[in-house]
Design a binder for these strands. Structure first.
Lengths: 120, 120
DNA sequence: GGCCTATATTGACAAACTTCGATATATCTG
DNA sequence: CAGATATATCGAAGTTTGTCAATATAGGCC
């Protein structure tokens, strides 16, 4: 069966969508852009591992210890932490000479809820 | 208070992590890399909108109708669908001249579960 | 077979990302 | 204040991504 229901149900004109679907996008451009900012920050294995470390030492591990877990330079880890912070996924707090990053669960939840909505 | 507990509890030597944390990464490189593949595929607003469309017409909307929702060229949409498929987030099925993509909930769940694990 | 339509692939180009070494900033210590 | 340490920023090099026009592939129809 080569022709699905929708295509036989209405005339297919050249240069128009084959099924004539005219529905608007339900996920608006602005919403999609905001979510993409979150997923972009998650789209790197080092940052995922940093988040995993933070989740197990939340607010109680300094940047230099995070650096110690990777075979990457200090500026590179600092860069990844900056990406996470600018995306809103973590906050930073300076205590003396050391800086401590913490997860922001309410922001992580936004990404999670989008995924839940897809499979709902 | 400039010196947190951990730092006073043990000697800080130069050229070593300040807190002497020696714990191994719990999220292994291979796991992080596999998750990053998923999040990379999610890290684009157009692909998020495509996933949203698929979630509401799962298996019942052809590629040309997806194209009709965007002000982007046909090859660009085809490219984004390919990214989603190679990441494992969707499958494709050809019926006659048309191609239908469907979500793979079990793969989306892997990304979701990682996020849940962080805030758990 | 020959034409039309739907989708994929290719090649090119600009923009964004990842990483590093070098350097700057800021805080503590003596 | 001078020196040391923790972290951030800058600038450069290489890689990846997003987009398009052009072209290829493949199925259906006459």
């Amino acid at each position: 069966m080569a022709t699905p229901r929708k295509h036989t149900a209405q005339k297919v004109k050249p240069n128009t969508p084959c099924c004539g679907l005219v529905e608007e996008l339900e996920l608006l451009d602005t919403e999609a852009a905001a979510l993409a900012v979150l997923f972009k920050a998650l789209a790197n294995p080092v940052r995922l591992q940093i988040l995993d470390i933070l989740s197990r030492h939340n607010g109680d591990i300094c940047v230099c210890d995070i650096e110690g877990q990777f075979a990457l330079s200090q500026p590179t880890i600092s860069h990844h932490l900056g990406v996470l912070r600018r995306a809103g996924l973590v906050t930073k707090e300076q205590r003396g000479l050391w800086v401590y990053y913490s997860l922001r669960p309410e922001i992580l939840a936004q990404a999670k809820e989008f995924l839940e909505g897809l499979t709902g």
